[in-house]
Design a protein around this nucleic acid. Structure first.
Length: 492
RNA sequence: GGGUCGUUAGCUCAGCUGGUAGAGCAGUGGACUUUUAAUCCAUUGGUCAUAGGUUCGAAUCCUAUACGACCCA
């Protein structure tokens, strides 16, 4: 990229000229209205009614277009709410200001004061009596018609993307609205919002590879958290019976259209509830989100029509594998050698060390996941892949756990919590064995967490909801990068 | 990690089987006091991602690298 091209040099010399005459970066100008306020109030009023009132307003924003002709011209200012047009006439502002105005560039930030009127084509505009550039833009904006479409530039220079692509700005406004709605929804249910550590001495709460960092003064290896789970559950021991946290997690894994190294989750824990209560809450939350964001419970994502008004399907993992694989029955899914035979026949590769739950999960990944378009709670997760979940009372091989899939994407993961300290210690030991066998996603032994459980954790259920993926769903975004203001990118 | 595609002016894009680099917008100069992708006339602007190679000659062919997009694991 040429840093000092001619366009920038020209703008810089205009700035230098301004500096010799006045403060080039003034901050005493104030607007009276946002663009959208003016449109809301006056768009409906006809010219004959509006013009004679001589309503005085002051607006500020980035100049996005300028159309000059002889002794007059129009400029469109864009502010956070929308855009408003200025009508600039030589007679009204004088020769000096007008000739100055003619040198301004797209992207300059401008203050305009004057009276409201409607143009011939009935567009609400400000007939300017006072005009001032408040910030010079030194870099040219992308062309106005095609905008900025280069994905890489959009992600790396999000500020430019936000200036020129209204769609992109709308995605992030929607994201903010969703997070705010979720927070309010949880508070209304009397969940308490808390913040727990991002830097962990013992990584835990999910099977995932952590980032490491180092505390200099303490000469201590620390891990960026992969999940807040174990801390939030300690809080239920402490008597906070309903807690939630909306915050960042960090996982040292691949980057894809569905994975960013740092991502946002809401996790919540609810004492005296079980995983069925979680599914009910989730379903209602998602419905109310759909109403809030979309205004309807029917909408589409990447060409798939979704209907959140229907009850979300709830189906066991084994029954889904039976449904989508070709030839395995639900009963077969409880038999390791039958599943291995099936894989051998189909040419599906697997690890001989896998237990039946692990192999079942693999088959689920392979055959089922991508087919789950309508919201589906997948239940009865095998114990082997659920080290923190409560064992089912009737079947010790499965846990009271679910994951929610929509359009083939995992959106949420929840379960009745394991609150038996001895069972939990056993499962940690199993994870440590996996870790020592080379599984770098396995969990560490967290002795303090066991100590907390030994004080007695109330029976509880907890869930994590991937906020980024949820935002993708509600903004019809194909890539997680489209819903992250500053997605991870390799250095330029 | 593997595969496919992409990278040309500030932006959006052309550029055929190798023969001196193009357009629109933006910019600059000029005309125009109700335009809205304003219009009209004139005009500036390039390390063709990077590094090698083939060739009399490379944006174009070959190799490697970087970054990105998409698909797969």
């Amino acid at each position: 990229m040429t840093e000092d091209n001619k366009l920038i040099a020209e703008r810089r010399s205009k700035l230098d000229a301004i500096r010799t005459q006045r403060n080039a970066y003034p901050n005493q100008y104030r607007r009276s209205h946002l663009a959208a306020d003016l449109h809301d109030k006056f768009d409906a009023m006809d010219k004959e009614t509006l013009d004679p009132q001589n309503i005085e307003v002051a607006v500020m924003g980035r100049m996005m277009s300028q159309r000059l002709f002889g002794k007059g011209g129009f400029a469109v200012l864009s502010d956070v709410s929308g855009a408003i047009q200025l009508f600039v006439q030589l007679n009204a502002i004088g020769e000096d200001v007008f000739s100055d105005f003619k040198t301004w560039d797209m992207g300059d930030i401008v203050y305009g004061k004057g009276t409201l009127f409607k143009t011939k084509t009935n567009e609400l505009s400000v007939k300017v009596t006072e005009l001032r550039m408040v910030t010079k833009s030194l870099r040219p904006l992308p062309e106005k018609f095609h905008g900025l479409s280069d994905q890489e530039t959009r992600y790396r220079q999000r500020y430019v993307d936000l200036i020129v692509n209204q769609d992109s700005a709308d995605v992030f406004k929607t994201r903010s609205k969703m997070v705010s709605h979720i927070r309010r929804y949880m508070e209304d249910l009397e969940f308490l919002e808390v913040e727990t550590p991002m830097m962990h001495v013992i990584p835990g709460g999910a099977t995932a590879k952590p980032f490491t960092t180092h505390h200099n003064a303490l000469d201590l290896e620390l891990y960026l958290r992969v999940a807040p789970e174990l801390f939030l559950k300690r809080l239920t021991v402490g008597g906070f019976e309903k807690v939630f946290e909306i915050n960042r997690n960090f996982r040292n894994e691949g980057v894809s259209t569905k994975h960013n190294p740092e991502f946002t989750m809401m996790e919540f824990y609810w004492a005296y509830a079980d995983y069925n209560d979680l599914m009910d809450l989730t379903e209602q939350l998602f419905r109310s989100l759909a109403q809030e964001v979309k205004g309807t419970e029917q909408f589409s994502y990447q060409g798939h029509d979704l209907d959140f008004a229907q009850p979300f399907r709830r189906q066991s993992m084994a029954s889904l594998v039976a449904e989508y694989s070709d030839g395995l029955s639900e009963k077969d899914c409880n038999n390791l050698s039958l599943m291995q035979q099936y894989c051998d026949n189909k040419g599906v590769s697997y690890d001989k060390k896998w237990k039946k739950g692990e192999l079942l999960a693999e088959l689920f990944d392979l055959y089922v996941e991508e087919n789950l378009i309508q919201p589906t709670f997948v239940t009865e997760y095998p114990i082997e892949i659920s080290p923190l979940s409560r064992r089912n009372d009737d079947n010790p091989e499965i846990t009271d756990r679910f994951e929610l899939f929509i359009c083939g994407n995992e959106i949420a993961n929840g379960f009745s919590e394991l609150n038996d300290p001895e069972d939990q210690a056993d499962r940690f030991r199993q994870q440590v064995a996996n870790l020592e066998a080379g599984d770098d996603e396995a969990m560490h032994f967290d002795a303090d967490y066991i100590r907390a459980l030994e004080h007695g954790m109330p029976p509880a259920a907890g869930e994590g909801i991937g906020i980024d993926r949820l935002v993708m769903l509600f903004t019809d975004s194909a890539s997680i990068r489209d819903v992250l203001l500053f997605p991870y990118m390799k250095p330029e």
